[in-house]
């Protein structure tokens, strides 16, 4: 525990939000008697992250992911609880701390709008006190990796969303931070750029040991980079562990995919002796997909093989996206 780079203990954030009914009268009344509501965004979250880990922070919209990242990078004071990152208390925002982290968010641009990105990157290098030789080397590396040569001399305002994202990434990685907080890093990037970026982040992590905490709505990002995920919903941790274990823990069922021999298929109903709890979720041109509780998967398979003209049968874990969708929709395990 003491060797963790990021330690979060019972971290809580409650927003105090003014509320009033619609209408002019209510607006006037709220001037005299404003009423507030406490909205819990993060509730007693605890976890720790070891140096060099890459962890995905996932959850539906409004789950508290960004609030969590903002507290860890020092932009928000928590309502309760404690956190330390690289030995610092984030919300004290000490210069040494700010130099050791990088926070990339969709709505925060480090690039100066009217000048080419290369000028902005050099200014950032100075702000973060990167030694000149190291700055040149790092710039060359990032420019090549992110294929930015053609962007360097155009004003940032003339770049596309994806191109600007590349510049932000270069700015965030320029000073070799110890911890990277990434909020939707591949937003706006095309598929091949997403793949390259994931590869670079993984390489960066292996080479420099940078610790990464990442939120993304693209599960491909999380699956490619993070062995460990923390799933939060309504501000609480629902799952913290291996990505591979998520399906097992959160979706205690298997998918049975049955291909029937078309010539023998008469459109018959499912066998009557199919164990209770097994349900048909999709049927298309002789291919049936059933969902069975893990404990009943073997019995259901046997029953199907006995009763139906089966050409092929496979037993699979549900796709991770489907599991997460189920959790997001249900709101609980």
């Amino acid at each position: 525990m003491t060797q963790s780079l990021i330690n979060v203990h019972n971290l809580t954030k409650t927003y105090r939000v003014p509320v009033r009914p619609a209408g002019l009268w209510a607006a006037a009344r709220s001037l005299l008697h404003p009423t507030y509501e406490d909205v819990p965004a993060v509730r007693q979250v605890s976890f720790s992250i070891q140096p060099g880990e890459m962890v995905g922070l996932i959850g539906p919209n409004g789950a508290g992911k960004t609030t969590m990242l903002k507290m860890l990078c020092g932009l928000l004071h928590p309502s309760a609880g404690e956190a330390s990152v690289a030995g610092f208390i984030p919300w004290q925002r000490q210069p040494a701390y700010l130099r050791s982290i990088s926070m990339l968010m969709g709505n925060k641009s480090q690039m100066l709008w009217d000048i080419p990105p290369l000028d902005s990157l050099r200014v950032l290098g100075e702000i973060y006190a990167v030694p000149p030789v190291e700055l040149r080397r790092k710039l060359d590396e990032l420019i090549e990796l992110l294929e930015m040569q053609e962007l360097l001399n155009k004003p940032v305002r003339n770049l596309s969303l994806g191109e600007r994202m590349k510049c932000e990434l270069a700015g965030g990685l320029l000073y070799s931070p110890q911890v990277l907080f990434l909020d939707e890093p591949t937003l706006g990037l095309d598929v091949s750029m997403q793949i390259r970026l994931r590869r670079y982040l993984a390489e960066c992590n292996q080479r420099t040991g940078v610790t990464v905490l990442l939120t993304s709505h693209y599960m491909a990002d999380v699956m490619a980079l993070c062995r460990r995920v923390i799933l939060i919903h309504h501000g609480q941790v629902l799952y913290d562990g291996e990505l591979n274990g998520l399906a097992h823990k959160m979706a205690p069922f298997k998918l049975l995919r049955v291909t029937l021999r078309v010539e023998d298929f008469q459109g018959q109903a499912l066998p009557a002796d199919l164990p209770n709890g097994v349900e048909l979720i999709e049927q298309q041109a002789g291919i049936l997909t059933l969902r069975a509780p893990r404990a009943l998967a073997a019995a259901a398979t046997a029953c199907l093989l006995q009763s139906l003209p089966v050409a092929d049968l496979s037993v699979e874990d549900p796709a991770i996206e489907a599991v997460i969708d189920q959790v997001y929709q249900a709101g609980a395990v």
Binding site: P95, L112, I115, D119, R122, V123, L124, G125, I127, A129
Partner: peptide, 23 residues
């Protein structure tokens, strides 16, 4: 110089001049 982080402050001035030269 390092304590006051003047290098960063000067970099901000340069960045602004570069921006303002555009308009």
């Amino acid at each position: 110089f390092s304590m006051l982080q003047l290098r960063g402050g000067w970099a901000l001035v340069r960045g602004l001049w570069l921006s303002w030269l555009q308009y």
